[in-house]
Design a protein around this nucleic acid. Sequence first.
DNA 1: ATTCTGAGCCAC
DNA 2: AAACGTGGCTCAGAAT
Length: 758
Amino acid sequence: MDLTLNIQLNLRNPTSDTETSERVKAAGNRKKAATETIEEAWARILTMKNSDADQAKLYEVKAAMQAGTIGRFPADASKRFSKAEALRMHRELAERQREETLRRMVEETPDNYELILTREQLVDLSAHLMAEDIVAVDTETTGVDVYTDVIVGMSFSLPNADRHVYIPVDHSAETPQLSLEYVLNTLRPFLQHEAIGKVLHNAMFDIAMFRRHGSDLKGVVWDTMTSMHLLNENENDRALGGVGSFKLKDLAPKYLGVASDTFDALFGKNAQFREVPLDLALVYAAKDTHLTWRLYQFQREHMAKMPTILEYYQSVEVPLLYVIVDLEANGYILDLDFAKEYGEQLHKRAKELSAELIATLTPYHDGEDLINLNSTQQMRPALSKAIGKELPNMDAKKTLKPLKGEHDVIAKLLEYKNITKLSSTYIDALPLKQNPTTKRWHSRFNPMGTVTGRFSSGKDEEDKTDQGFNAQNQPQEARPMFVAPPGKVLVGADFKAQEIRCVAYLSGEPVLIDAFLEERDPYAMMASNFYKRPYEEVNKNPDGSDTKERKQMKVVWLATLYGMSDYSLAEMLGVSKKEATEFKGELFGSMPKLSAWLAANDEFAKKHGFVWADKQARKRRVPDAKLKRKHIPYGKWNDPKYEDAKKHNSRIGRALRQTTNARVQGSSSIQTKVTMIRAHEYCVKKPGWSLWATVHDELIFEVPEDFTREEAQDIRNIMLNSYRWGDDVPNGTDIEVMRRWGEGIPVEEWFKSKEESE
DNA sequence: ATTCTGAGCCAC
DNA sequence: AAACGTGGCTCAGAAT
C-alpha cells in the first residue's frame, strides 16, 4: 500500500515547475548576499576529496541545477552550499528519475503484455498454453525461502501466441484477483505436462515454489541461469570480461541489448512485490519471462554450435535441477542437545584460554582497549613482542604452528583460535538456522556454483533470513550434530580416489591404470615405481600406518595436480628447491605418458584459451593462457616500473595452473552429477529413501535402517557403473553406515553386527 | 547503520 | 616476483 501511495503522491510532484523556479530564484537572491557564489561553492566542493561515486553524483546535481530542473531546498538556502546539501539534492533527483522510469514503464507497456484477472481470461490462457511447445515461466513471491514464502503472482511468455502475461494472485491492490488455488488448478494440465517445455531463469527456485503450493512444475527443459554458466563460466569475473553476475537483469543488457532495472532500483530495497500496483507489476513480471525467452533463444543458438556441451546440458544439468530440489527439500535434522553441550564445553575452555592470553599479552599491547584476540592487526605486534621475535603474519599453519613447542602462549592461542572458529562458525551458528516451516535445516547446493562444474553450497545471494549454510565444509567435529531421522540411517558412498582415476583415464598413464586394475593404492604404486622397492614395503608400515614414502608421493601428486611450484613443494617436503625439482623430475620421468599429458594441457590452453572436461561436455575458459609473457630483466624484480609486467605474468601462471586442475575437477564433477541422477532415480522408487547430501566425491543417502544387503549392493552398482572412465579404469567406492554424520562403520560390519544381535 | 575487503580457516 | 586448484563463512576494520 505504501508504494502505491508514494507513487501517487510523487506523480503529483511536490517539486512542481513553479516551486522549482521559485527555489532557483531564492537561491539566486541569496547568492548575492552570500560571501561565496554557487559557482565558487561548486569549485570548492568538486575539488574536495570525494569518492568516485560521490563525484559522479555531484556532477549530476550541478548539471541539473544549471538546467534548472532542481533548485536548493528553501530550508537550506540561507546556509552555505555544502557537499551534504548537494548529495541530499541528488537523492531527490534519483527519486524523481525512479518515478519517471516507473511512469514510462507503465506508459510503454507493450500491447502483447496482458494482466490476467478474470476466469474467462485464465481459461483462454490455459488453452493457449496447452498449444505451445515451450513456455517461459516465472513466479513472483514474498521472499526466497522456498519452504515459507508464498507466490503472489506468476508470469508466462507464450512464443507461438506472442503473448506475455502476468497473473497476480495475492497483490494488495484493490482490483479483484484470481486465487492462487484456482489458478494452479486451472493451469495444472499445463504445469504438469511433461511434453510442454518450460524455460526459466533459476528454475530450482520456481520448481520448489510450485511444489510448495502443491503443484509440480514438470517439463523444465532449460534454465537460462545454469546454461549461462556453461556458456561462460567467467561471467562473474569482470577482469575476464564478465558482467559480474548471472542475474537476468545483468545478462539482458549484454546479450540482448535490453536495459533492465533491478527490483531494488525500481521498487526500493525492502519492497514487497505484492505491494506493487498491478499495471507496474505486469510490465515488470511479463518482461522477466519475455527476457528469459529471448535469452533462451540466444543461448540455444550458441550452444547448438557446441553439440557436446548441448548434449551434456540437456541430459545432465537439466534433470539434475529436480534432483537438487529434492535433496535440498529433504534437509537435515540436528541434535540440539549435542550442540548445546558441546558448545558449552567450547565456551568454557575458550574463556579460560582468553583470560590467560589477555593476561600474558596485555603488557605488550599498545592500544587503550583490551587486546582483541581475534584481531590479527592487534595480535601480530603484541605476540611478536611477547616472544621476542618479529612474526611476518598470523598464519596458524605456516607461522604459529612451528613455534608452538617453544612458546606456551602460541600453543594456547592456537587452541583458542581452533575452538572459537569451531563454535562461532559451526557449533553455535548452525542451531540458529532451523527453518520455521519445516523445522529442518536446509542448505543450498548450487550445481553451477563453481567455474569447474563442482557444486558450491551456502546461502542464497538474496536470502535475508540467514538460514543458509555451507554443508560441504562442515568440519569433522561438527558433523556429529547432523543425525539421521528416527528409524533411518545415513549411508555414505564415496568415489575412491576419484580424481586420480580420472587422471589415469585422461592421460592413459599405465602406471596409474595398472594400479587401479590391480586394486592397489595408487600412491603406494607410484612410490614403488619411483623408489624401485616392493609395493608392500612402501604401502603400509608393519603397524598398519601409512609409510613415509606413500605420504610423500601423495603430497607430490596433489601438488602437481594443482600446479604447485618447486619452491612450494620444497617447503612442504622440507627439502631444498633443487631436491624438490629433482624429485619431481624423476617421479614424472617414470610416468612419461602422464608427463606428456600435463604438458599437452598447457599447450592446448596456450593455443585455444580453454580446456575440455571429459567427452567435451564442458569447457573451462582460461583466456589469460594465450597471453605472451612480458620480459623482466634480471635484477629489476623490485623496480616499480615492472609492477604491471609482474601482474601480467602472474595471470598467465595462474591460468596455466588452472588447466590440468580444471580438466580433472570438471570431469570428476560430471561423474558425481551423473551418478546423482541415477541415485535419485533409484531413491524415488524406494519408500523412505532420499539423497541427503553430496560433498564433491561423495554421495550420502538417507535410508530406512532395515535396508538390505541387496540394496547396499544396488548403491555400490550405482556408484561403480553410472559413469565410467572408459573401459580401462574401474571405479571404486567405500560405503559406510551412520546414525550421526561422520561416525560411520563399513557397511559389511553394519550387517554383521546386525546379524549377531538378532 | 550498512556494505565491502582482507585475513584466516573449514571442506574436497 | 610469486610460488596450490575449487568453494563459503566469520570477524575486524575500513569505506560509504
